[in-house]
Amino acid sequence: MRITCPLCGARDRREFYYRGAALALERPAPDAGEQAWDDYLFLRENPAGETRDLWYHANGCGAWLVVRRDTRSHAVLEVRLAGEGAQ
């Protein structure tokens, strides 16, 4: 599996750390309530198909990436820097 880091180019999956759904970028306000926090931290869309998830180029440039991917085929559709308002 290979991911094309926008800063470094196509790299092997070994260089990346996987965190989970890109939902993690959408942190609720502290007072958003129990349901919002449950949604944020635990509940998952978990699609069989296109998903957006977070990868960290740990053994590379250190960028956090939002990767649009297909969970059935492992096709990588798009990679963006998390810090560039990818949400």
């Binding site: 970028l25 942190r27 998390a82 810090g83």
Partner: peptide, 13 residues
């Protein structure tokens, strides 16, 4: 380290 980068890049860019 990874956590700090996440918070910085992902939550407080």
């Amino acid at each position: 380290m990874r956590h700090l980068e996440f918070v910085s890049q992902g939550l407080r860019p």
